[in-house]
Nucleic acid binder design. Structure first.
Length: 569
RNA sequence: CGGGGUGUAGCUCAGCCUGGUAGAGCACUACGUUCGGGACGUAGGUGUCGCAGGUUCAAAUCCUGUCACCCCGACCA
């Protein structure tokens, strides 16, 4: 492609709307253009990369035996009513009516539609297992779209759905997708990790996420330093401490702690480590006006997902308001404690291992010291309530946990009968008996992958595309092209040769100064740069530089094709 | 949705407090010089000052409303 015929608009300045690096670079490089909150156009250079990602995904899905389909973006409400998600999904589901006043949704995902297709077309176990996939625009009316294409409202997803007669087949299909995803992200040249996940609103039993590792990632992921255990922080189990709880030594005493509303303030005022204080959080119960107390060590954080799974706790988790707290305890937040509290109480395993601890006295400006379980507090249920921390023992039993950050680019689920049951997708088995199908679903955020690739691969000059995703493999930079007949002749010939040999070459034949061309080549992140200049040609040499390198190398001009080919991939 | 903030040229922003001719840099067009790391000169085009109402002789500027967008918290590929 000749750059003179390829309108690109690179910017030196960072647009004010962009917060994260990938977003800034995508705008500066002219890959995308924002149309409205969370809605983006993909311009030619950006689309080239997007298509490369799609191609890798298609090849690997096809290789895994999945069949490509396209389903409608807009879906009839009836299907969503049948699966109950019409009411369960919430405001993220964009709903609208057509001219006949019929209800529709803009598809955020396609479990309902694919299940509808399968229940009508698949009648026999002999047609199973089967896996359908599509690469398609999805719409989720995110409360707050941000980070550009990373969390947009409209985005492109590869979604796949597999159907099975029995659990063994489902596991096999799931495993095949796990392997396909591993190949996909490996081929894309990304540093990624598969982690145990929470299933969220899609539902189901088993699920794993694929994360591209990047310091700016939105998710915390944890892994063992000794085996292959890895999980999303929100799904990582915190093991109970091994050491038995020490015996009580102190008597319980009430102390005045004016204004000490946080663990930090309390810890400073009483000169007690946060780990010896008890944090008491009141959350709304599932019954009207009910509250539930969650008890944690002062230095630990509540894990909302774990908490909202407990019996009696409202879903989604909501902290109790000031009025409810006052009604339940007679005090205000900051001075709550389990002693004498009469609501349902769950205590984290580590909190239960404390002896002689400090907690709120359910009285303004008062705390209790020397508090002990059983002796002073009764009726507490043990539970895993907290987020794990770096250094905690791994739930796998081997090693300690490390924490890093990741961008979720893929998610695979074993859904079981969550959709096939309500939508009545069943086939006859070999004995002529009707069996409800088991289902798996598998998603990749294609547009997000592109952003994640940049988030993981950039420097102060711009994008550094992993080669499989780069819009062009080679950027050909002639210097003083307009004046030097020799440069033009060599560059034109090189361009023809390289292109004819199947390489994707971006030929910067603009009438621009060298600095401009170099800067754009680096911002755009083209992996291989070939410079043609009079200075080198005097000695019969060309100059080559790999985008990640800081130094250039020279080589004989007549060996360009071999030289480049040896360095591709 | 709650809290904070911003809307002025394609982009980054100044001007607003204290009302009186709408600006700078980048980008864009033409010409000339320059040409191995984001050049320079000359000339040029570019605006519903987010929108609507109000106050005033006069509003980018003051007042009211409204819309959009961005940032911080609960969701997801």
């Amino acid at each position: 492609m000749r750059l003179s015929q390829y309108p690109i608009n690179t910017a030196k300045e960072t647009p004010a709307e962009a917060e994260v690096l990938s977003h800034q670079l995508m705008l500066r490089a002219g890959l995308i253009r924002r149309e409205a909150a969370g809605l983006y156009s993909w311009l030619p250079m950006g689309l080239k990369t997007l298509r490369k990602a799609e191609t890798i995904i298609r090849e690997e899905m096809d290789r895994a035996g999945a069949l490509e389909v396209i389903m409608p973006v807009f879906q009839p409400a009836e299907l969503w009513q049948e699966s109950k998600r019409w009411t369960e999904y919430g405001p993220e589901l964009l709903r609208f009516k057509d001219r006949h006043d019929r209800d529709f949704v803009a598809g955020p995902t396609h479990e309902e539609v694919i299940t509808d297709i399968v229940r009508r077309d698949i009648k026999s176990y002999r047609q199973l297992p089967v896996n359908f996939y599509q690469v398609q625009t999805k719409f989720r009316d995110e409360i707050r779209p941000r980070f550009g294409v990373m969390r947009a409202r409209e985005f492109i997803m590869k979604d796949a759905y597999s159907f099975h007669v029995d659990a063994a087949s489902l596991q096999q299909g799931y495993r095949a997708m796990y392997d396909a995803y591993t190949r996909i992200f490996t081929r894309m040249g990304l540093d990624f990790r598969a982690v145990k996940a929470d299933s969220g609103p899609i539902g189901g039993d088993v699920s794993q996420e694929f994360h591209v590792l990047a310091a700016s990632g939105e998710d915390a992921i944890v892994f063992s330093d000794e085996d292959d255990y890895a999980a999303n922080l929100e799904a990582a189990a915190a093991l109970p401490p091994k050491e038995p709880r020490p015996a009580p030594r102190e008597a319980m005493a009430k102390v005045s702690t004016p204004g000490a509303r946080t663990i930090d303030e309390l810890s400073r005022m009483l000169k007690v480590e946060p780990s010896r204080c008890l944090k008491t959080l009141l959350v709304e119960g599932s019954q009207e006006e009910d509250v539930v107390a969650l008890l944690l060590r002062g230095d630990h954080d509540l894990n909302a997902l774990k908490a909202q799974r407990l019996p009696g706790v409202a879903t989604p988790l909501r902290m109790a308001g000031a009025e409810r707290i006052a009604r339940a305890t007679g005090a205000q937040a900051g001075f709550i404690g389990p002693v004498g509290l009469r609501c349902r109480m769950y205590a984290d395993h580590s909190a239960l291992a404390l002896a002689d601890f400090v907690c709120g006295a359910n009285e303004k400006d008062m705390h209790l010291t020397g508090v002990n379980w059983d002796r002073d507090v009764a009726g507490v249920t043990a539970a895993d309530l907290r987020n794990v921390r770096e250094g905690d023992p791994s739930p796998s039993g081997r090693g300690r946990l490390k924490i890093t950050r990741g961008i979720e680019v893929g998610h695979i689920f074993q859904l079981g009968r969550k959709y096939s049951e309500p939508l009545k997708a069943a086939v006859l088995d070999e004995s002529g008996k009707e069996v409800t199908l088991l289902m798996g679903c598998y998603g990749i955020g294609v547009t997000r992958v592109v952003a994640a690739a940049i988030e993981q691969n950039h420097d102060e000059r711009g994008i550094i595309w992993p080669e499989p995703l780069a819009p062009f493999q080679v950027v050909l930079v002639p210097l003083n092209l307009q004046k030097s007949a020799r440069v033009r002749e060599v560059a034109d010939r090189l361009y023809s040769e390289l292109t004819a040999s199947g390489l994707e070459v971006l030929y910067d034949d603009r009438d621009a100064r060298p600095g401009v061309k170099f800067a754009d080549a680096e911002l755009l992140g083209i992996p291989h740069r070939l410079v043609v200049g009079d200075r080198g040609l005097e000695a019969g040499r060309l100059e080559y530089r790999y985008r990640r390198d800081s130094e250039s190398t020279e080589f004989p001009a007549d060996q360009a094709l071999d030289f480049i080919k040896a360095r591709i991939r």
